[in-house]
Design a protein around this nucleic acid. Sequence first.
DNA 1: CTTCTGACA
DNA 2: TGTCAGTA
Length: 129
Amino acid sequence: MKEKELRRSLAVLPIGTVMKLTNLSARQIRYYEEQQLVMPKRSEGNRRMYSLNDIDRLLEIKDFLDEGINMAGIKHIYDEKERKLAEKQAKLEKPLTDKDVRRILRDEFIAVSGLSKQDEFSFKHNNNF
DNA sequence: CTTCTGACA
DNA sequence: TGTCAGTA
């Protein structure tokens, strides 16, 4: 399920093909790029190259527009989507430090050990997990 | 022949 | 958004 995503993100379609697949004019496709709604790659000759994901996005943009949403609104939708995605990755890719692990284990041990307040105090100041 | 940037009767 | 110009 990773090879498939790779292919969908490969930018290999020239604007002419994109025009036929989306029924959008070159003017519109370039304009949406100016509005940061799509960011196609560029070939060595400075030609825009789109991926299948770009096609989906352009089609989606066209739908949003038909629903009466303006450029700013669509930009906001994508910006918000990126913000939430970055938020999730930040939490998933933040490994616990040894210090965090030791603190968690210690607190959990104290919680179930039945130690008195005085014992807990001694424990916290003598152990070196 | 296709695409690019810039501009606007 | 369309379209024309002058390029690459």
